[in-house]
Design a protein around this nucleic acid. Structure first.
Lengths: 245, 245
DNA sequence: CGCGAAGTTGAGAGAGGTCAACTCCGGTGG
DNA sequence: CCACCGGAGTTGACCTCTCTCAACTTCGCG
């Protein structure tokens, strides 16, 4: 038993999220009738790579990670999944990555792909919402690449905390249900450096810890040196002129 | 005038690609009637960030980059776009990134968003294809994160070459229309290190250059040390057990 | 012929990976 | 109740790799 289990992403109640799946400001009620709920233990696989893509998934409560194991034994986490997030979309009838629960008792809603597609064929508005959701996922994924591309370790960890804060219902009191190892594999750095960076930020007074898995952001501006973390700031590059590097 | 202008991604002829847009194995003919074609000069902006998202786009011939300029002056390229690639999808009626032509005379097809959406409402099959395309884009984007997360410079550049080879019509003779600076901003490393890595791979006999922008891959296996570059190899991580790292 | 942009190569310095030791905490069994 | 154990997390010391700055080459173009 872990202390943060009771408070994972508290804003979304189960009933609410099942009967009215929410992404962005849009509410999809049409799919709710098809949903099946599954409870997952800490670390339990939700689906594996190369599994047939029979379902689309949504986190109802708890948290999960989407990850890949590389041939050299390293693990990479390509996304963290929180309540309301849809995932497991795949063409070609098989998944590219695997997904696992992070929190004990994570509740996952399963939507049979075939059924939803039939529903979509009769309901263009639902189709549009799913499309927009996928478009947003692309944008979000590409925005996350900006985080990975950041130079220093403190910048990466800072940008990570800001991303988690933006996805968290409570603005400055951020719950990090994942382990330091998960964070390291997400940011493509070593656990030691993640730990050092967090300690560094703490000593600078930029953040504090209520406990290991609960961070409070004290100085939001200091977290993104240069203001690159938020994804609003993407400017076009003019002919590569500005390139001094 | 540059020597590679005439041979950019030669397999897709203009007429063919306009009348029958191709993604994956799927052909979308319904959208073709709405397309408008625009020719872009080298470096010319196709659309800027924060521009209203009026169109969806597709490269007919040539190449483009999707990029962001960070607050500290650095540039990040989040995607390279080649013939057949759709891009510029955005919700919230504004783009998150900017897009610019890389090759002189790059031809871009513009699809009015409103018109296509109306078309989709009447044609579920078209909607499904667009959805699948977006799903693929997510998978591809997340797979690219694996490249960014690789440790050494030679691994990154090797994985980049493999990615380009897979997206290229000609398997081992890969055309790289973008500059070394573009590659550097795509892989989040310095131009010098990109250049050094390429030279290194050349001296090892892994690759050769027909000219600066045309690479031939001699030893495909040596390019992905450990075999992590291809995205088929994504295994699930079991409870984090394998994690020694 | 000279200029500037793109690309390559060299030398140094700083940052993060690696290995190791240590603490902290919960769980288990005596 | 306490000793023991193992995993997660933190901190330290060392070393390697990449960034940075710089010089130089190559190439296309005026």
């Amino acid at each position: 038993m872990h202390q943060w289990e009771g408070l994972v992403m508290p804003s979304v109640s189960l009933q609410q999220s099942i009967s009215a799946p929410v992404f962005g400001a849009v509410t999809v009620t049409a799919m709710a009738s098809l949903a099946r709920i599954r409870s997952c233990r800490r670390g339990q696989r939700i689906y594996g790579p190369d599994d047939p893509a029979i379902y689309w998934y949504r986190i109802a409560s708890g948290a999960a990670r989407k990850c890949a194991l590389l041939a050299d034994g390293r693990r990479r986490i390509v996304d963290f999944l929180f309540p309301g997030d849809f995932f497991g979309f795949a063409t070609r009838h098989r998944h590219a990555f695997g997904a696992e629960a992070i929190a004990e008792g994570t509740l996952v809603a399963l939507y049979p792909r075939e059924g939803v597609e039939m529903l979509v064929d009769r309901d263009p508005e639902l189709g549009r919402q799913i499309r927009d959701m996928a478009f947003d996922a692309v944008t979000r994924s590409q925005a996350r690449m900006l985080i990975l591309g950041r130079v220093t370790a403190r910048e990466k960890v800072g940008a990570f905390l800001i991303e988690m804060a933006e996805r968290s219902p409570t603005a400055n009191a951020v719950v990090l249900p994942m382990s330091r190892y998960d964070i390291a594999d997400y940011l493509a750095m070593s656990v030691e450096t993640v730990s050092r960076s967090l300690s560094d930020l703490k000593h600078r007074g930029t953040i504090t810890f209520a406990d290991i898995h609960r961070v409070r952001i004290l100085d939001h501006d200091a977290l993104d040196d240069g203001g690159n973390a938020r994804m609003g700031n993407c400017l076009v590059c003019e002919q590569g002129k500005l390139r001094k590097n």
